[in-house]
Nucleic acid binder design. Structure first.
Lengths: 251, 251
DNA sequence: CGTGTTCTTGATGCCTTTCAAAAAGGGTGG
DNA sequence: CCACCCTTTTTGAAAGGCATCAAGAACACG
């Protein structure tokens, strides 16, 4: 099913990484890819719901999400949960946690995931030995910050319908850049509770608004997939204008 | 009034930077500080309300905030504004904007500010020549992301009173680490409109909740200063537990 | 085919927004 | 120093969006 079995403990060799071929990612020199390969400790496979990083963890490793979806979240002492952002294939996972002394958030697998594991200790090496990669890591960190900025703007300023539209559009575009969209549809593994926690809305209100937008013909769902029926209307409702998705580094 | 006049266009020499002495910051080697000095193009002085980076700007420089307060924000097409985070002395300004091809946000001076200007073009040099500094820049980027995470959690999960309490506590702690607090009071230059935009609340509701918390004895304001009268109660209302403020790099 | 989870729907209430206008500051010029 | 104007803050009233409570429907799974 995955490549793990055929390729053993380290999965696909980085030089032959299928993700690298996607238009979403920038080209790398062989040197860089070889360095990445040498840093890669393990190819890890986790089940849906598994903890990738738990809140407060002090020895979090750095990962690249090879396949599947995950999300980053923060808890309040009384149990309320905010989902901060979603992680899709090619995204760096745990950069913040691997740089800071303790993780200020948790990361959980949303679907089955495969992770390329890079030991925390070697991140420093990378900065010393591979400036080009370290620059790209900082770039990816900034890109993630920019995504969170947008989520914060959404939660702070948009109403329920606008928030849902914005989230759907944004995930659609990211999935599309990865070649995961077929006939305007893509795998959409979020439960309504997770949606609610990402949007800063109650479960009930999320459900009602979600079905209102479906009935309005913005999108449809079936079998864990979401199909965007009216992208124009959806992005207009979201007040979210197109932005070029420039290719990004894949570490 | 400021040191700018006496020190000319480059302000205080970095080796004698008074900020560096504060306990909030980690020590640096002379080599590192000299490199920073050599990268510093200018010491810039701006008035309150000035644009430091405007939304969409493609040639944003990198700055360190030497004195004063600023904030980062994002606009929706219809004019709604979300303030993403506040910047205090010693904070890196414009990292995201200087790495990405176009700024996804604006940055505005809240008070008079002094900025150390580092040319965008030389950021790459820094990654090649000074791995220790590049690592610290990535670290500071992650720290900023962590602050935004907390704001997102606040806006998504806390009610009006809790949000205000959390913001006040968080700014208090940051100001305290910089030695800006005297007798539990510190300069608090936010208008209620800015507060509202940071909290994701309407101006009216912000005003009412703000005065409710004042009357409840959490804090008082006068003359542009805020005094924290009941830190325990405030942080309990905010559901915000203490966290060690570890010293951070000052670039 | 039970049993637990997730999703849906209805009813109620409150937190927050919106509308409106007065009060309080802040700065300028006479 | 006061009159005047503009911005910011405060307060009241009404409406609405969203949360909460509750329970039934749909679904997944062993």
């Amino acid at each position: 099913m995955t490549d793990t079995a055929q390729n053993g403990r380290n999965g696909v060799p980085c030089l032959a990484c299928p993700l690298r071929l996607k238009p979403a990612f920038k080209d790398k020199t062989d040197d860089e890819v070889r360095f990445i390969q040498s840093m890669k400790l393990e190819h890890r496979h986790l089940a849906p719901g598994a903890d990738i990083i738990h809140p407060g963890q002090e020895d979090a490793e750095l990962y690249t999400l090879f396949s599947g979806w995950a999300f980053r979240y923060q808890l309040l002492p009384d149990g309320r949960r905010q989902i901060l952002n979603f992680l899709l294939p090619g995204d760096l996972v745990g950069l913040q946690a691997s740089l800071l002394s303790a993780a200020q958030h948790g990361i959980e697998a949303l679907t089955e995931v495969e992770l390329c594991v890079f030991p925390r200790k070697r991140v420093w090496d990378l900065f010393v030995r591979m400036p080009s990669l370290s620059y790209e890591i900082a770039w990816l960190g900034s890109r993630e910050e920019s995504l969170i900025d947008q989520n914060l703007t959404s939660v702070g300023q948009r109403n329920a319908g606008e928030r849902i539209a914005a989230l759907v559009i944004s995930l659609y575009r990211r999935a599309d850049a990865l070649g995961l969209v077929a006939e305007n549809g893509f795998r959409f593994p979020l439960s309504q509770q997770q949606l609610a926690d990402a949007l800063g809305l109650s479960l009930v209100h999320t459900s009602k608004t979600w079905s209102r937008l479906r009935k309005a013909g913005l999108f449809s769902t079936s079998d864990g997939r979401l199909t965007l029926l009216n992208p124009r209307l959806t992005s207009r409702m979201a007040l979210l204008y197109e932005r070029e998705v420039e290719p990004r580094p894949l570490i």
